[in-house]
Design a protein around this nucleic acid. Structure first.
Ligand code: FES
Ligand code: FES
Lengths: 141, 141
DNA sequence: CTATAAAAAGATAAAAAACTCTTTTAATCT
DNA sequence: AGATTAAAAGAGTTTTTTATCTTTTTATAG
């Protein structure tokens, strides 16, 4: 479903939500080791998220990546769209050039249900909320 | 979501459901041109589906690919599983090594809704039913 | 102001997915 | 039986995704 990159990105954002804030920034290495993900590759992803203002970062000593309060109040949709592109939520499930009710593919109407589930997955709770649930219920990330 | 291969495969199966039967077989080229898909690549996919008995084929003059009655009474799940692997319906949406309610990831419970939609998409109608709907409603494939 | 720490950027490499070409096998027709 | 047709199988190639390595920029600390 999501690309590997996107999965890494989501997990990294959640990790930052739990373990970082403006006063406690984390280096790529910290996150990569905690999530068991290739470091230099994760660095690229975090840079990309940072460029899109979905996470925050500063350079230099005591620098690193973190989630600002604002970052944490967003949901995960932006993260997914930033890495995998916005089309994941709107493109035809059979790969036809356009997806529309005007000219639908055979799976179009049922694809709505699937998309609904997908959107709820990433939209109906903030990153902060997910992170808090992870802590309360000791979930794996 | 589905790989490109899988999308091609689904479309090809539907095309066969509509345009072929045991008495009217189609060559790879026919299908590839109709769907505007790379021919030799589609050939590989059809061979794979044929090996898994999801479509039928015969060699030689008047040979080709087609859907038997039995093939057409199945749903699309087998096609998807044959090309993309069965894990698409059961693997963790965040890429964790196992997906289970015992040790769930933060998105696990909501992922169920998404999976439900995905399964309905491919399971709740037979290939024949989809094909008939395509003909009745002149849908694109 | 200099040394240092860490992200940003750029350039490369490896692996996987998508796509192509060639040879072999099997069915049909004459 | 021999010629022909079309799938099956095998061996490449190209493109995209994933992963690594190196250099540059910027913020901080001393
Ligand atoms: S047209 Fe295929 S999903 Fe909408
Ligand atoms: S554990 Fe992640 S979806 Fe089930």
């Amino acid at each position: 479903m999501f690309s590997k990159s996107c999965k890494y990105a989501i997990r990294a954002v959640l990790y930052l939500a739990i373990h970082s804030d403006a006063e406690h920034k984390l280096g790529v290495k910290d996150v990569a080791e905690a999530l068991d993900v290739p470091g230099p590759f994760l660095a690229k992803l975090l840079q990309q998220l940072s460029r899109h203002h979905l996470i925050s970062s500063t350079k230099g000593p005591n620098g690193g990546f973190y989630l600002s309060e604002t970052n944490a109040r967003a949901n995960l949709r932006g993260v997914v769209e930033s890495i995998d592109g916005p089309e994941v939520f709107s493109s035809c499930i059979l790969g036809l050039p356009v997806c529309s009710s005007q000219n639908p593919c055979p799976l179009h109407s049922r694809a709505q249900l699937y998309r609904q589930g997908l959107l709820e997955l990433v939209e109906d709770q903030t990153i902060k909320e997910v992170a808090e649930r992870v802590e309360r219920q000791e979930l794996k990330i």
